[in-house]
């Protein structure tokens, strides 16, 4: 049984009288530990599909089964727990809370864990060091560059030890060197811990590193 199964997933948006088909009949199986890259033109439905897998956008039709659970059949709170514990989310856009410092932004997802744990402070500091921000622990997002903010968001995604990382152009604002470092980090974590990565990217260079490559075209998916 695959870790993630998408069964004929559709997502349509109503815009005025028109209907936009953002995701069109996607059926897909993803095994645990896969490193998947998705490329596609702007507006082809990549963010929409990723959001559906991440439990933050319900599909119009179709089912998303993760570890044998139809996640959109779960109640609100169980779905929130799925997001908190199974998924690590790295967004295309800036996603830090402005009132919180870098470290506090990392601690935020741990607050949402159903069971409280310990040692998160230490873990947050370690994670920030992993993305090269050990000297920015107490900085607020407004005091960080775009690329630094992005790295904080990346570090945050790993705080609750997720099984699956969904990353929407995670290296968008990063220079080539940092981009390469982040990719190395991802691949290392993928190998060591068997975390599944689903990565959207515009760069076919990065896409090459994946164990499996997909392309989206007008809501439809195809293997490369």
């Amino acid at each position: 049984m695959a870790q993630i199964e998408l069964l004929d997933v559709n997502k349509t948006y109503a815009v005025g009288n028109n209907v936009v088909k953002a995701v069109d009949g996607v059926t897909l199986e993803i095994e645990k530990g896969e490193f998947i890259s998705i490329v596609g033109h702007s507006g082809s439905g990549k963010t929409t599909l990723l959001s559906i897998i991440g439990g933050i956008l319900s599909p119009s039709t179709g089912r998303v089964v993760v570890d044998n659970t139809d996640i959109y059949a779960l109640d609100e709170d169980r779905l929130s727990e799925y997001r908190a514990l199974k998924i690590g989310c790295i967004f295309q856009f800036s996603s830090l809370l402005p009132v919180l410092t870098a470290k506090e932004n990392l601690l935020l997802p741990t607050v949402f864990r159903p069971e409280k744990g310990n040692g998160f402070e230490k873990k947050a500091v370690e994670h920030l060091a992993l993305v090269g921000l050990e000297d920015k622990i107490d900085a607020h997002p407004s005091q960080l560059s775009g690329g630094q903010q992005r790295r904080v968001a990346i570090a945050r995604a790993f705080m609750n030890d997720p099984d699956i990382i969904i990353a929407d152009e995670p290296t968008g604002d990063l220079d080539e060197e940092t981009e390469a470092e982040v990719m190395e980090l991802f691949k290392g974590i993928n190998r060591q811990r068997g975390i599944t990565f689903i990565l959207v990217t515009h760069s076919s260079e990065l896409a090459k590193d994946a164990t499996r490559r997909l392309r989206m075209t007008r809501g439809r998916i195809q293997e490369l």
């Binding site: 991440g54 933050i56 609100e76 709170d77 929130s80 727990e81 997001r83 908190a84 514990l85 998924i87 989310c89 967004f91 996603s95 830090l96 809370l97 935020l108 997802p109 607050v111 949402f112 864990r113 945050r156 609750n160």
Partner: peptide
């Protein structure tokens, strides 16, 4: 939206 996406429940 961010908080919910990273796991906050409605009650949080």
């Amino acid at each position: 939206g961010i908080m919910r996406a990273i796991g906050a429940k409605g009650s949080h």
